[in-house]
Deep mutational scan, measured.
Amino acid sequence: DEVTIHLGDKTIRVDGLDKELLEILKELARRGADEEELRKEIERWER
């Protein structure tokens, strides 16, 4: 499953996201997290 996250004018595509992680990323994005913060969160989950 590829998920596309839209952040204002930026788009991040991620393969096979965990549903819980997806919810966390959506919440972070709502709070104004930037792409770098979201990537760090994704990397934390992948470990």
Rank of each mutant, 00 (worst) to 15 (best):
D1W: 08
D1Q: 12
E2Q: 13
E2L: 12
V3D: 11
V3P: 09
V3Q: 14
V3I: 14
T4H: 15
I5H: 03
I5D: 03
I5L: 06
H6M: 13
H6G: 07
H6Y: 03
L7N: 04
L7V: 15
G8N: 09
D9R: 03
D9C: 07
D9L: 06
K10I: 15
K10W: 09
T11M: 04
T11P: 07
T11C: 05
T11D: 10
I12M: 07
I12S: 02
I12C: 06
I12D: 02
I12K: 01
R13P: 07
R13Q: 11
R13V: 13
R13K: 13
V14R: 02
V14L: 15
V14G: 05
D15K: 14
D15N: 08
D15M: 02
D15T: 11
G16P: 04
G16S: 11
G16F: 09
G16M: 11
L17W: 08
L17I: 13
D18L: 06
D18K: 08
D18A: 14
D18C: 06
D18F: 05
K19T: 09
K19G: 07
K19S: 12
K19E: 11
E20S: 09
E20I: 12
E20M: 12
L21I: 05
L21N: 00
L22V: 15
L22Q: 12
E23W: 14
E23V: 11
I24W: 14
I24E: 01
I24A: 05
L25W: 01
L25Q: 00
K26E: 04
E27V: 09
E27R: 14
L28S: 01
L28Y: 03
L28N: 00
L28R: 01
A29Q: 06
A29E: 03
A29I: 15
A29C: 07
A29P: 00
R30V: 04
R30E: 04
R30N: 05
R31W: 09
G32Q: 01
G32F: 01
G32V: 00
G32H: 02
G32D: 01
A33P: 00
D34I: 04
E35P: 07
E35T: 06
E36M: 13
E36T: 10
E36P: 04
E36L: 10
E37R: 12
L38Q: 01
L38H: 00
L38P: 00
R39G: 02
R39H: 04
R39M: 14
K40H: 05
K40P: 00
K40Q: 10
E41V: 13
E41T: 12
E41C: 06
E41R: 05
I42K: 02
I42T: 01
I42P: 00
E46D: 07
E46G: 14
E46W: 15
E46M: 15
R47Y: 14
R47L: 15
R47I: 12
R47M: 13
